[in-house]
Design a protein around this nucleic acid. Structure first.
Length: 699
DNA sequence: GAGCACTGC
């Protein structure tokens, strides 16, 4: 991993445009890898980006005949885009058509065929397959890639795989990890409490651990490929990180050759810039959209002072909410005599890789979604990044050549304040969806489930309580049938699943389908450059007094007939709506409808939903979202059932509007206030009617 | 009258 302590020798002379797979670092380890997979149930592969593990290892296994007798090699990824791009690349390397021997499977896209032997997929997708095939019997090898990211689905998969392995001695598990966590994975799989002689003693009882114990998991390290990165710290903490970041941008730009001025704790060791200008970006965590845009315009303004013939700066924003064509702009080569400066959220930390980054400015913070068991609500909060995360950010500067990373914090903060590793998602998430899924997989005793990092018991208790109140679990915490089982099968969170399944009783299936789809996509409403007023008035045309859910339904109903028509995108633009988000909502809606069809729930949209105030729809919402209820206070804020003070988000139609009781979709915490988004007016009596147990529990 | 990390099924 690139860091300040790394030796400074450079591999620049080895740079080549095309690297045939035979000379990737992994090629030298081919035999060792195959030996381990052959002889050990679990192989932990430690290797950095660029080592070739993701693309090569499945091919080696295929060549070594792990795909005989119709078996498949699975390789999971935490992100869709990784699954598709890697599959495309491997199909090319193998000279086959994508979807035949090599394919991928992600939500809405199954690019596989009966001939597929190597299958890249999202981790969530494999988890879903386990619901249908609990032993994952189609697969001979399951490779969990990027396991060190510890995504929710990856953690659940690891626990399930460990369980499956006891029943399937032929299964091989490969876990790819960063150095820091390799031992933890090995310990997890190694600590079986049962005999390790799975090759010979497949029929031995569990828990028989005497004698003949064999190591179950082996670690193998592949040399990575990256250049040294010089890491520099501030001497004093920055008062204003945004300002400091912009100063640093100009320091780098103007003084790249003697840039030790603001970072005196390190000798200059300056990278001589070649005639082509190098790009750099800052990886950030605490800025939001407006801050990024502020930084962009400020940099642009200050860049006006540069000598016209001096090298210029081209600042570019990058965040998930940006329209995709603007996102893609960061990949365009800079015009001649320009240096690209990419100001981004942490979308660039793991999801997007921009080549030719030589400088990274790391502000040292990250915004995380965390579930508060006390309030039962998920919210965002700002925390210092972990050292592992900071190392990852710094490493982004060393992809093409030796680079520099400017950390906008002190070395002391790095050593004393930051933790070694971030808290895994499973320890800070709403576990209701996870536990529901485990129950559906037949794992009844979820409290004793073998999590690699067990979640806090408060999170477990909260999740069980919610699932019980939703009717997914019975008095003995067993999955109810059909309700709980159906809820687990649907690809939405339990509260949404509940309103979908319940919509039949309120004769508003169509409407709830549309609402569920709309709340699952983000950024429905957009504003064009400098066009706040018209966007607001466009939105008012869809607005419904009773709240955001019905407003979203109006938007969906207006859009749906235009979907797939040639002028749909233009219609969206004219109405200040996000075409891509709405198109995705249509896909989600269709998928959810197929589930209801499968359950033989007659899709009907007559009756309650059709009334002017949408009472049936709002009642139905209350049957799932009762845990997200709040009451308006005299000062205009809301008070949640747990006593939290909440404010209607400015984007809500309930913003500055009078109401009594409401339910809401989600909570967003910013610096000063906690906001609720997607808010709908309900009656207090409905809460007592549909969730009497829940409201008795907390009085 | 104030402003939404990032994924995934």
């Amino acid at each position: 991993m690139a860091s300040a302590d790394r030796a400074t020798e450079s591999e620049e002379s080895l740079v080549s445009l095309y690297r045939p797979s035979t000379i990737l670092p992994i090629a030298r380890h081919r035999d060792a890898l195959l030996y381990l997979v052959e002889n050990y149930p679990v192989t932990i592969v430690v290797g950095q980006t660029g080592s070739g593990k993701t693309t090569q290892l499945p091919q080696y296994l295929h060549q070594a005949r792990w795909t005989e007798e119709g078996k498949i090699i699975a390789c999971t990824q935490p992100r869709r885009v990784a699954a598709t791009t890697v599959a495309t690349r491997v199909a090319e390397e193998m000279g086959v058509r994508l979807g035949e021997e090599v394919g991928y499977s992600i939500r809405f896209e199954d690019m596989t065929s009966p001939r597929t032997r190597i299958k890249y997929m999202t981790d969530g997708m494999l988890l879903r397959e386990a619901l249908v095939d609990p032993l994952l019997s189609r697969y001979s090898v399951v490779m969990i890639d990027e396991a060190h990211e510890r995504s929710l689905s990856t953690d659940v998969l690891l626990g399930i795989l460990k369980k499956i392995r006891r029943r399937r001695k032929d299964l091989r598990i490969v876990v790819s990890s960063a150095t820091l966590q390799a031992e933890e994975f090995a310990r997890f799989f190694g600590d079986e409490g049962e005999s390790g002689e799975e090759e010979r003693g497949g029929n031995r009882d569990e828990g028989d651990g005497d004698g003949g114990r064999k190591e179950l998991a082996k670690i193998i390290s592949l040399e990575g490929r990256c250049y040294p990165v010089d890491v520099l710290y501030l001497e004093e903490p920055a008062e204003n990180y945004l300002e400091k970041a912009m100063q640093t941008v100009f320091d780098i730009h103007l003084k790249a050759r003697s840039m030790n001025m603001h970072f005196p704790d390190k000798p200059s060791n300056v990278q001589a810039l070649t005639s082509t200008l190098n790009k750099y970006r800052r990886v950030k965590g605490t800025f939001w959209r407006e801050e990024i845009e502020t930084a962009i315009s400020t940099i642009m303004e200050r860049a006006g002072d540069l000598h016209p013939r001096a090298p210029q700066i081209l600042p570019l924003p990058l965040y998930a909410g940006l329209p995709s064509d603007e996102q893609l702009a960061v990949f365009d080569p800079a015009p001649e005599n320009h240096r690209k400066v990419i100001v981004s959220t942490n979308i660039a930390e793991a999801s997007v890789t921009i080549e030719n980054i030589v400088f990274v400015i790391d502000c040292g913070f990250v915004k995380l979604r965390a579930f508060d068991p006390r309030t039962g609500i998920e919210a965002l909060s700002v925390v210092p990044v972990s050292r592992a995360s900071a190392t990852q950010r710094a490493g982004r500067a060393g992809r093409t050549r030796t680079g520099k990373c400017f950390r906008l914090y002190t070395q002391r903060a790095f050593n004393d304040v930051m933790t070694e590793m971030g808290v895994p998602e499973i320890q800070r998430s709403n576990l209701a969806p996870v536990l529901l899924q485990l129950k559906a997989l037949g794992i009844d005793n979820v409290v004793r489930f073998d999590f690699i990092t067990p979640p806090p018991s408060e999170l477990m208790a909260r999740a069980l309580e919610l699932l019980f109140s939703l009717g997914a679990l019975d008095d003995y915490a067993r999955l109810t049938k059909p309700l709980g089982l159906r809820m687990a099968e649907m690809p939405v969170d339990p509260m949404t699943a509940k309103i979908l399944l319940n919509s039949v009783n309120f004769q508003c299936t169509d409407q709830i389908l549309s609402i569920a789809a709309m709340t699952s996509v983000q950024n429905v409403f957009i504003t064009h450059e400098g066009s706040k007023k018209p966007a607001e008035s466009a939105k008012r045309k869809f607005a419904v007094e009773e709240g955001d859910h019905l407003t979203l339904l109006n938007v969906y109903q207006a859009f749906a007939p235009k979907f797939n028509k040639p002028n749909a995108a233009k219609w969206c633009k004219d109405h200040y709506l996000n075409f891509r988000a709405l198109s995705r909502a249509v896909s989600v809606c269709q998928q959810l409808r197929r589930y209801l069809d499968k359950f033989n729930l007659r899709v009907s949209s007559e009756g309650g939903g059709g009334t002017p105030t949408g009472e049936g729809i709002r009642r139905c919402l209350a049957t799932g979202y009762f845990a997200h209820a709040a009451r308006m206070q005299p000062d205009g804020s809301f008070r949640s059932v747990n006593g939290m003070q909440l404010w209607a988000h400015p984007s809500s139609v309930m913003f500055n509007r009078k109401a009594d009781w409401v339910v809401f979709h989600e909570v967003v915490e910013t610096g000063k206030k906690t906001f609720i988004r997607d808010v709908t007016v309900i009656e207090k009596d409905w809460l007592l009617e549909y969730a009497p147990g829940f409201y008795q529990l907390r009085k």
